[in-house]
Design a protein around this nucleic acid. Structure first.
Length: 572
RNA sequence: CGGGGAGUGGCGCAGCCUGGUAGCGCGCCAGUUUUGGGAACUGGAUGUCGCAGGUUCGAAUCCUGUCUCCCCGACCA
């Protein structure tokens, strides 16, 4: 591609609304333009990267035995009513009506449509296993789209769905996808971890997220420094502490704590550490069940764990009125003694004694409290969020905390959709069985964004070779110089003949501008063609990733560069 | 959903408090000189100041409404 005939509008300045580096660089490098909140144009240069990611995904999905198809972006409400999600999905589902007032939605995911396909075409276990996938634009009306392609409302996703006659088969299908995902992200040149994740409301038994490690990631993940345990913090299990609480040494006492509502304030007032306080959180789930949760003062509640324990989908902090009703006092003074609701405690309290508590009375707290003696709890369960330094649940190691960008998610669906939509097959015994499903997603644009988060410097993007929109840029320093022009054109042609994707910078710009643009757009390899080098029958050759500039003899230059491109494409 | 902020040439911003008919940098066009890390000079083009009302002799500026966009939070007992 010749630069002068291409469409690559780069920006010197960073757009004001771009917060994270991948978004800034994508905008500056002429990859994307915002059209509306969370909705973007993919300009030619950006689209090339998207296609690179898609093709890697496609090759690995095909290798794993999945079969590509394409489902409609617009889905009839009817299908979503069959699964129950027309009601469940909430505002993220973009709904619309056609001219006949029939309701539709823009598909945010395609379990319903794919299940309908299989229901109507597969009737025997002999046709299984089956794994169908598509690469398609999705729409989710996110509460808060942000960070460019990282969290858009409209986004390109690869979604795959496996169908098996039984759990054993589904497990095999799952493992195939898991391995395919590992290969995909390795081929993309990303530093990632596959972590255990909560399967959420879907209720499946097993789920992994593929996380690209990056400071700007929206998810927190834990991993063990000693073994290969890794999990989303939402999922990260913590071991029950060993030992029991020591015997109480203090009497229960009441102290005035005027206007001291936060644990830190109360602890400071009592000259105690927050670790010696217990906080009482009042929450309510979607069934309007109210529970009180006890946690050590400095800990955070993991709501996902609580939901799993309560077998509910959503839980939130009670409002002021409800807290008053349950505890008899305003927020800030809640405690477990004398509550009219379930009281559940985190594991950790089992080993604590003589701690501080809210008194359920405005402006009062209790000291020297002990469970068993002063109050009872329904159970001690794992409810708190993991922090760095916690014990690994699998070995003797300690947990570390990372930030990550979720680029892929695989999980077992079980029979949720097949049962709801009556998708069954006959097994070997002639018995009708609900299909056992799995679903597997990859965010294509997010993967590209994650690659930039991991591969950039102050000057711009540094594309990993497999994702590079062009593999080589040939920079003609002065295209008006006939020798330069002739040599540049020849190199360009030779590289094309080698099958290399090359951008020829034939613009009549000063060299400085060309170098800046080349760095910004991040082409991995650059060849400078200038009068200075040509005097010695040489080009200059430079690796974008900080390599030294080296002289490259004109003779055989294209072959050498091509060789280096191919070497960088081999899967590690 | 709660809080905060912003909409002024293609991009980044100033002007607004204290109303007087719009400015800077980048980019763009023409010319001259330049040409190895975003050139210099000269000349030029580009704005119904988000939209709708209102106040006023006069509104980018003050008031009301509205739309859009961005950020933070949604763990506080």
């Amino acid at each position: 591609m010749r630069y002068t005939q291409y469409f690559l509008p780069t920006l010197k300045e960073t757009p004001g609304d771009a917060e994270v580096v991948s978004h800034q660089l994508m905008a500056r490098a002429g990859m994307i333009r915002k059209v509306a909140a969370g909705i973007y144009d993919y300009l030619p240069f950006g689209l090339r990267v998207i296609r690179k990611v898609e093709n890697i995904v496609r090759e690995e999905m095909n290798r794993a035995g999945a079969i590509e198809l394409l489902m409609p972006a617009i889905n009839p409400a009817d299908l979503w009513q069959q699964s129950g999600r027309w009601q469940e999905y909430g505002k993220e589902l973009l709904r619309l009506k056609d001219r006949k007032d029939t309701e539709f939605c823009v598909g945010p995911t395609h379990e319903e449509v794919v299940t309908e396909i299989v229901r109507g075409t597969v009737s025997s276990y002999r046709q299984l296993p089956l794994n169908l996938y598509q690469i398609q634009t999705k729409f989710r009306d996110e509460l808060r789209p942000r960070f460019g392609l990282m969290r858009g409302r409209e986004f390109i996703m690869k979604d795959a769905y496996s169908f098996d006659v039984d759990d054993a088969g589904a497990e095999v299908s799952y493992q195939k996808m898991y391995q395919a995902y590992r290969r995909i992200f390795e081929r993309c040149g990303l530093d990632f971890r596959a972590v255990e994740a909560d399967s959420g409301t879907i209720g499946g038994s097993f789920s992994h997220e593929f996380m690209v490690l990056a400071e700007t990631g929206e998810d927190a993940i834990v991993s063990c420094g000693s073994c290969d345990y890794a999990a989303n913090v939402e999922k990260a299990e913590l071991r029950a502490p060993v030992g029991e609480a020591s015997a109480p040494t203090m009497e229960l006492g009441k102290v005035a704590t005027p206007n001291l509502k936060s644990i830190d304030d109360v602890a400071a007032f009592l000259k105690e550490k927050p670790q010696q306080m217990v906080k009482t959180l009042v929450l309510q789930n979607e069934r309007e069940e109210t529970v009180a949760v006890l946690l050590r003062g400095d800990r955070k509640l993991n709501e996902v764990k609580l939901c799993n324990y309560l077998d509910c989908n959503h839980i939130q902090m009670a409002d002021e009125a409800l807290v008053r009703k349950i505890t008899g006092s305003p927020t800030g003074f809640s405690g477990p003694i004398g509550l009219s609701c379930r009281v559940i405690s985190d594991y950790e309290l089992a080993t604590m004694s003589d701690f501080g508590l809210g008194a359920n009375e405005e402006n009062f707290h209790l000291t020297g409290a002990n469970h068993g003696r002063d109050f009872q709890v329904e159970a001690f369960v794992d409810l708190r969020e993991a922090v760095a330094g916690d014990d690994c649940p699998r070995c003797e190691g300690k947990l570390e905390i990372w930030r990550g960008i979720e680029v892929g998610h695989v999980f077992k669906l079980g029979t949720k959709y097949s049962e709801a939509m009556n998708a069954t097959v006959l097994d070997g015994q002639g018995k009708e069985r609900a299909l056992v499903m799995g679903c597997y997603g990859i965010g294509i644009g997010r993967t590209a964004a994650a690659a930039i988060e991991q591969n950039h410097d102050d000057n711009g993007i540094i594309w990993p070779m497999p994702l590079a929109p062009f593999q080589v840029i040939v920079t003609m320093l002065n295209p008006k110089d006939e020798a330069v022009s002739a040599a540049g054109e020849k190199l360009y042609q030779d590289l094309l003949d080698e099958g290399i994707e090359v951008l020829l910078d034939d613009r009549d710009e000063r060299p400085g501008s060309k170098f800046k643009d080349a760095d910004l757009i991040g082409i991995p390899l650059r060849v400078n063609v200038g009068a200075r080098g040509l005097k010695e029958q040489s080009f200059e050759f430079q690796d974008r990733r900080g390599g030294e500039r080296v002289m490259l003899p004109v003779e055989g230059a294209a072959a050498k560069v091509a060789e280096q491109v191919r070497a960088a494409l081999v899967v590690g």
